[in-house]
């Protein structure tokens, strides 16, 4: 298998309905799938385990950023891992995009590849969602000094040497800006890659509400 050295990291919180299918779709294509169950109160952990994933459990709900950090730290202890892929549990990301990003990282010797839904026209986001995301991009770019076209996109490829520079302290949503900042500080080369984010009814119902943008701004401003 060409991607034996890839670990896909999936933070999960109460996604029992979909997480099994999502992981089943990944498990045969990469070396490991590491799922961090962030204190779910449903059967997410069982569903993930049945689908063949490594499952770590947070005893209490800490937030996606904390789950991601735990997943990264565990993945770095797995032997022979070269690339870590952060992947959402709700089915909005595509395996094909993730693998294309890994290929890009390999071919161009990149430390990080960020997924962006604004590099092509595939992703259908409503006007308000677009506005919120663009604002988040702007804020992230201001605080990180990087020029990304998308922020808060959960699909990223991080080479292990870059992952060692990630120490997320923002447990909640603001970690998406924090991880960009910390990856930027590693000084490793990075690129963006177009991805297709699928807004299913399920992910829409669960996804970030527009009000959450206010929370993110606050978390970033008052660290």
């Amino acid at each position: 298998m060409p991607n034996e050295d890839v670990a896909i990291l999936v933070p999960v919180y109460n996604e029992a309905r979909v997480v099994g299918d999502v992981i089943a779709g990944l498990i045969d294509h990469v070396g490991h799938v590491v799922c961090v169950d962030d204190g779910s109160t449903d059967s997410s952990a069982d569903a993930a385990r049945r689908a063949g994933s490594i499952v770590l459990r947070h005893a209490t709900n800490l937030g996606q950023g904390a789950a991601l950090q735990t997943a990264i730290e565990h993945a770095l202890t797995l032997p022979d891992m070269r690339y870590l892929v952060t992947f959402d549990a709700d089915g909005q990301h595509q395996l094909a995009d993730a693998l294309a990003m890994v290929d890009l990282a390999r071919n161009e010797d990149l430390g990080v590849v960020f997924g962006s839904r604004f590099l092509d026209e595939r992703t259908q986001a409503g006007f308000l969602k677009r506005l919120v995301l663009k604002t988040a991009v702007w804020v992230t770019n201001q605080s990180t000094g990087m020029r990304l076209t998308d922020a808060h996109n959960g699909l990223r490829v991080i080479r292990t040497d870059a992952a060692r520079g990630v120490h997320l302290t923002q447990n909640r949503m603001a970690h998406a800006s924090e991880i960009v900042l910390q990856l930027g500080r590693t000084g490793l080369p990075w690129r963006e890659h177009p991805v297709h984010v699928l807004y299913t009814d399920y992910s829409k119902a669960k996804g970030q509400s527009l009000l959450n943008a206010i929370n993110i701004l606050f978390e970033l401003t008052f660290r």
Binding site: R57, H58, L62, E73, H74, T77
Partner: peptide, 9 residues
């Protein structure tokens, strides 16, 4: 919480 999860892993 993280230390516990990593130990389990």
């Amino acid at each position: 919480t993280r230390a516990l999860a990593l130990a389990e892993g």
